[in-house]
Computed example of a mutant assay.
Amino acid sequence: MTAANGQSLPGPGRTTFEVAFDLKPEAPDWPPVPVERLWGEKTAVEFEMRLLNVPFFARGVAYGDLVHVRPDQERRELVFERLNGESGHSTVRITVLDQRAGRDVQHRLRAAGCSWETAAQFSSLLAVDVPADGDYRALRDWLVARRGEGAIEFQESAISARHLEQVPDFPA
C-alpha cells in the first residue's frame, strides 16, 4: 500500500501490530477480501490500539480511532472487537470511474487536507482520510457533484461526529 500526502504509517521506533477486521459480505463480490488488516499502536489501555492507517473495506473506523482488540490464539492475531473512541477523522472510499478525473480528485483531496492510500490490486480505489479539522461539508458537496457527473463513486465508511455536525442533512 502507498500513502499519499503525508499519511502517518508505521515506521522505525513505533511498536505496531496488525489488527484483523473480519468483513461481512455486502454484495456477492464485495468486499473482495474476507479480512482486512490495519496497523495499530498500543495505548496505555489493555487491548486498546490506535489505528495508524486508513481502511479500504472495514466500516465504522477511521485513522487515529481507538479500538479494542482480542487476541485470537487459533488465528495467532489480534482481532477487532469494538470502537473505543473516535479520533474525529472520517473515512471515505472513492472509486475513480473516469481515469481522466484522477488528477482532479487528488488535487481536490490535497486542497481539503486529506490523505489517502492506494493498493496496486485495487488501482482505482482510494481509501481517504478526512482530517478532524477538515471541512467535510465542502468536500462532500464536491464528491456528490463528481458522482453526478459519472467521474467517481464514493462510500462514506466512517463519518465522525464532528463531520456529521457539518452536514445536518446527512442521510440516516
Rank of each mutant, 00 (worst) to 15 (best):
R140F: 11
S8W: 01
L126P: 03
L38M: 12
R75D: 12
N5A: 12
E117H: 01
G150R: 09
V35N: 00
R37T: 08
A20N: 11
Q7T: 08
R75Q: 11
E149Q: 13
D22V: 12
P131Q: 10
E165L: 14
A58K: 05
V69M: 12
R140P: 09
P25D: 13
P71V: 00
A158T: 02
R14L: 14
S115W: 01
T2H: 10
L78E: 06
K42E: 14
L66N: 06
P10L: 00
F17V: 14
E46F: 08
R75A: 14
H107D: 15
V61D: 05
P34V: 04
A58R: 05
Y63E: 07
L38G: 02
G88L: 12
A58G: 10
A112N: 07
L143E: 00
D133E: 14
R14Q: 12
P55V: 12
R50K: 10
R108L: 04
D129H: 09
E41D: 11
A44N: 11
A101D: 06
E46W: 04
H163Y: 13
V19E: 06
A4K: 05
R70F: 00
L97K: 13
L97N: 14
F57H: 06
E74W: 03
R100I: 01
N84T: 11
G64F: 03
S90T: 12
E153Y: 03
V19M: 02
A145T: 06
L9D: 01
F80N: 07
R59D: 11
T2S: 10
L97I: 15
G11Q: 09
V61C: 11
E86T: 09
R37C: 09
G85C: 06
T43R: 02
L38T: 08
R108K: 07
V19P: 03
I159K: 05
L126K: 03
S115V: 05
V105C: 04
P31V: 07
A120I: 04
T91R: 05
R100P: 00
Y63K: 03
Q166M: 15
A151I: 06
L23H: 01
F154T: 10
A161L: 13
T118K: 14
D72S: 04
A138C: 07
I94K: 05
D133K: 09
H107M: 14
P32A: 13
F122N: 01
L126R: 03
T43G: 07
V167Y: 04
A62E: 03
K24W: 09
A111M: 13
V105E: 01
R93W: 03
Y63G: 03
L52F: 06
L164H: 11
Q121R: 15
P10D: 01
R50M: 08
E165S: 13
R140K: 14
F154Y: 13
A62G: 00
P168A: 12
D129I: 08
E117G: 07
L83H: 04
L143S: 04
V128F: 02
A119E: 14
T95H: 09
A145D: 11
A145Y: 00
F17Y: 09
V33T: 14
H68D: 05
S124V: 06
E74Q: 07
